[in-house]
Design a protein around this nucleic acid. Structure first.
Length: 514
RNA sequence: GCCCCCAUCGUCUAGAGGCCUAGGACAUAGCCCUCUCAAGGCUAAGACAGGGGUUCGAAUCCCCUUGGGGGUACCA
């Protein structure tokens, strides 16, 4: 076998779809495992919806995830160009050669005539298998007809044969050629159809393994006919199962992604500082795109790990699999043949596992932009602010699973104003004796020689036992007084981060006294 | 309609005839730890779609049914 060469052929739609990137990842893992080349080929033949700027988000997404390509946009190689719109002449040439070699023929039927044929077949309850009138005409006469008129070209499907495929994931599949109509491979205007362009390109680019979504399995027999016609060896095929919507047996669709922008998701975005207008201005901000996870502060390694395990397993127990391990063990034979549902909960868990392993400095760097975009910290934080942020992150520990989680835990400590939560205040501050305790405790900490976790805790325990109250009464009251909310890092950590003066200010101006 | 694919806990999966009273993970519930929330520990509940074969023996092989999905285009 020659070198492993795979490809992924996205069309520039303006966003990187989660299902597509999973397929790309399988290609990439397989390729890296075998030391081959992974090619990114841009399927931009559909001129109107393919603007140049619509490619950028896709490339950005791949780069963010660390999926690199050996040939493609920005990486010239021996088999370019890598934009299908620049390869039209190749399809045209190939199709004409097929007419000359009697493997293809011009279609002289009009759209209306074709429709009539199809309807007649339907009425007779017979499957419609197209065979055109010029199918058996001589190559010479077809060629001269083509010289006079621009006509669509159809590929001849050989009569009576069986087309077989040994799919690397699905095993042996076969089709009867007689069930297949002669497909148009080139439109009258010279633009190629997908089933033909993909074969011409895959052959020209020496693709050894076509790893693609299972929805393409039905296209494969026609493509196999095309390979035979152009006289190229066929690559190996592996059809990976589609990714389904969460809790559903429906494919995670590229179309109608707006439905994934539920009110819940919208709230999540708003909570991390996105305005309704900003969300509306981005049509890729929904859970079906890679960009969404990036904006939510997921670690790219976590997304990769999750996606890699979706439909593939390394063994009977591994869940957190570092990229290098994945590359070392990836194999198409362990890719499942049944569809898999995307599970946001599990992805969130994986994200948390990866965040636990993040070095502190990287965590700080990752969290900062979220605080800045929400206006909690300025573009150029002061040394004091940076120091505090680091302390907050240390104190928050495993609570931060996504970078955006810093907003929940960091905002109450980093912004000067405290937003008091009604329920928390009612439950923890407006309680018999809490105001007295807080006032007394404020007096105690004022006198502390050092203001650290040990001394604050000591003061609190001392006061509680002197008063004969549960320490938790004061602890909960303090947290709400200092942060406005009930959940968060340990209270002593909170007070140390705020500092003595700010802690006192917050305690004394808290709603416990109003 | 016709062709093709798929089918293990809610979800991701292990399982390639006996190791299966079906294992793990996420999610769920309970308990423990504890200053809340996370994290962690322990426990619970939870699946071979149905029916026929083959076999001493089937989640695993075959057939049928059912259910899901894809294709059937001058879409990709």
């Amino acid at each position: 076998m020659g070198p492993v060469r795979t490809r992924f052929a996205p069309s520039p739609t303006g966003y990187l779809h989660i299902g597509g990137v999973r397929t790309a990842l399988f290609n990439w893992l397989f390729t890296r495992r075998h030391g081959g080349q992974f090619i990114l080929r841009i399927d931009d033949t559909d001129a109107e919806r393919n603007k140049a700027e619509a490619l950028q988000p896709i490339l950005d997404g791949f780069r963010w995830l660390g999926i690199d390509w050996d040939e493609g946009p920005g990486v010239e190689g021996p088999h370019g160009p890598y934009f299908q719109s620049q390869r039209q002449h190749l399809y045209d040439q190939a199709a004409r050669k097929l007419v000359a070699s009697w493997h293809a023929y011009p279609c002289v039927l009009t759209a209306d005539e074709l429709r009539v044929e199809r309807e007649a077949a339907e009425k007779a309850k017979r499957p419609y298998i197209h065979r055109g009138p010029r199918r058996d005409a001589t190559a010479e006469s077809n060629l001269s007809l083509l010289a006079e008129r621009r006509l669509p070209i159809r590929l001849k499907v050989p009569d009576g044969s069986v087309i077989a495929l040994d799919d690397l994931i699905r095993g042996h599949v076969e089709w009867k050629a007689d069930d297949l109509g002669d497909p148009v491979i080139l439109r009258a205007d010279g633009r190629a159809l997908y089933n033909f362009a993909t074969v011409v390109d895959d052959a020209a680019m020496r693709i050894s393994h076509v790893v693609r979504a299972a929805e393409h399995l039905s296209n494969t027999p026609l493509q196999l006919v095309a390979y035979a016609a152009i006289g190229s060896p066929t690559p190996a095929f592996a059809h990976v199962p589609v990714v389904n919507e969460p809790n559903s047996k429906k494919k995670l669709s590229k179309r109608d992604m707006t439905k994934f922008l539920t009110t819940e998701i919208r709230q999540k975005l708003e909570r991390i500082g996105w305005s309704a207008a900003e969300i509306a201005a981005r049509d890729d901000l929904n859970p079906a795109t890679v960009a969404f996870y990036r904006e939510m502060g997921y670690l790219p390694a976590a997304l990769i790990n999750y996606l890699g395990r979706l439909g593939w397993s390394m063994d009977d127990h591994s869940e957190i699999i570092p990229l290098q391990t994945m590359v070392a063990h990836f194999g198409l034979e362990r890719v499942n043949s049944s569809p898999a549902s995307f599970d946001p909960d599990k992805l969130y868990w994986v994200a948390g596992e990866y965040m636990k392993e993040m070095p502190l400095a990287d965590k700080v760097a990752g969290c900062l932009p979220f605080l800045q975009r929400a206006g909690v910290l300025p573009a150029e934080p002061s040394a004091e602010q940076s120091r505090k942020l680091e302390q907050v992150i240390i104190a928050s520990g495993d609570r931060i699973k996504l970078f955006s989680d810093i907003l929940q835990y960091g905002t109450p400590l980093l912004s000067p104003a405290v937003a008091y939560d009604e329920k928390a205040v009612a439950k923890r501050l407006r309680k018999e004796g809490v105001a007295d305790l807080l006032a007394a405790f404020a007096g105690e900490i004022e006198k502390l020689p050092v203001f650290d976790v040990q001394s604050i805790e000591g003061a609190l325990q001392a006061l509680s036992s002197a008063r004969g109250t549960q320490p938790s009464l004061l602890i909960h009251g303090l947290r709400v007084a200092c942060t406005g909310v009930e959940v968060g890092p340990g209270v002593y950590d909170i007070m140390v981060i705020l500092g003595r003066d700010e802690s006192l200010r917050r305690i004394r101006s808290s709603p416990a006294f109003s």
